[in-house]
């Protein structure tokens, strides 16, 4: 018999959820004060709240990245777009512009960055890796120019609310992420966008033959990915109340890609799993928080992360699973 997995085991979310749960249980049992949640200043406070709050940028980026990857592309520029949007937001906040301007202009810049990526990929036909690499490199440079090599500090409570505000004890940023996710879920599943994205990702040639306009779909997803990065940029900038063009969102594109892949969306494109990407982002942040909470030293951190990522990828690979079960069966048979 070929191994016949129960339906629950074949769910794209099963293994990543299991992993997340295991990580949390391990921490609650063995990491000092990990599971403690207190109420402080009228909101919940504790490591688990930190995981939720700090995973928001990766969740946002992962959402955009998931759609991009589903079309068979990739967006390396999100980290740089974060820096650009953060820099613009910080400069406007520092100079005392009204809140709508502080929010709208960075998001517009992020959207334009995304459209630019989409234009290069869909219209010009540059490979996504190369096309977004352009902005990945130049975007951070632009942000540095805007900031003049300094950390631009600001103090604007209404702007800072994005990362410091709480509603019913939970951080505002969580609601923001939930709203973006709900919007994406609705748009991709209640319109044909999701179907077309998957279709392009699975088979671009055949998609053209059924009349799907890949150009506009790709423009939409890259623009959206840019927008997500813009929102994440505002979040990360208000988090430290300053625009640190050199460091903000550094390597975050890798986390977003990782979250997407952990979530079950294949790098080759096709079927995508938004909820999976959210779980992926939570896993990445839980790891980071675990490592900080347990006081693991930095070089060890990277190794731990690598091991975890490899094991998740292996567990999700059907080839590995079948070989593993073959191995186990073989041993069982001989015993």
């Amino acid at each position: 018999m070929r191994q016949k997995l129960p339906d629950v085991l074949r769910s794209p979310y099963f293994w990543s959820l299991l992993f997340l749960a295991a990580l949390l249980i391990f921490n609650i049992l063995f990491t000092e004060r990990f599971g403690v949640i207190e109420v402080r200043d009228g909101h919940f406070y504790g490591n688990i709240m930190d995981i939720l709050r700090r995973s928001v940028p990766t969740v946002l980026l992962g959402t955009g990245m998931t759609l991009v990857i589903a079309t068979g592309g990739i967006d390396l520029s999100v980290g740089a777009v974060i820096a650009v949007s953060g820099a613009i937001g910080a400069l406007l906040a520092r100079d005392g512009y009204p809140l709508p301007v502080i929010i709208a202009l960075p998001l517009a810049a992020a959207l334009i960055s995304g459209v630019w990526n989409g234009f290069l990929v869909a219209k010009i036909g540059i490979q996504p890796f190369v096309a977004t690499l352009i902005l990945m490199v130049s975007g951070r440079g632009i942000a540095q120019l805007l900031c003049g090599g300094q950390i631009i500090k600001f103090s604007d409570p209404s702007f800072e609310y994005i990362s410091a505000g709480f509603i019913l004890g939970f951080p505002f940023s969580m609601y923001l992420a939930a709203a973006v996710l709900a919007a994406v879920q609705t748009v991709t599943r209640k319109t044909a966008l999701g179907l077309f994205i998957e279709s392009i990702g699975v088979n671009p040639a055949a998609s053209r033959c059924v009349g799907i306009n890949a150009t506009s779909i790709k423009l939409i997803v890259y623009a959206f990915s840019g927008l997500c990065a813009g929102i994440a940029g505002l979040l990360l900038t208000t988090e430290i109340r300053g625009a640190d063009a050199n460091n903000v969102g550094l390597n975050l594109e890798m986390d977003a890609i990782l979250a997407t892949v952990i979530g079950g969306t294949a790098m080759t494109g096709g079927k995508f799993y938004l909820a999976g990407s959210v779980i992926g982002a939570l896993i990445i942040q839980t790891l980071t928080t675990t490592i900080l909470a347990r006081g693991v030293t930095r070089p060890a951190t990277l190794v731990v992360k690598a091991i975890v990522v490899i094991s998740i990828s292996l567990i999700q690979s059907s080839v590995f699973r079948s070989q593993l079960s073959g191995l186990l069966a073989g041993r069982g048979g001989r015993a």
């Binding site: 044909a192 179907l195 998957e198 279709s199 055949a206 059924v210």
Partner: peptide, 23 residues
């Protein structure tokens, strides 16, 4: 150029109709 392999039979069947209906 024909089938979109990883998508379901249902999705493959309705795809052209959906494309002509628009997004």
């Amino acid at each position: 150029e024909g089938i979109i392999g990883n998508l379901s039979v249902r999705e493959n069947i309705i795809l052209a109709l959906q494309a002509s209906r628009g997004l």
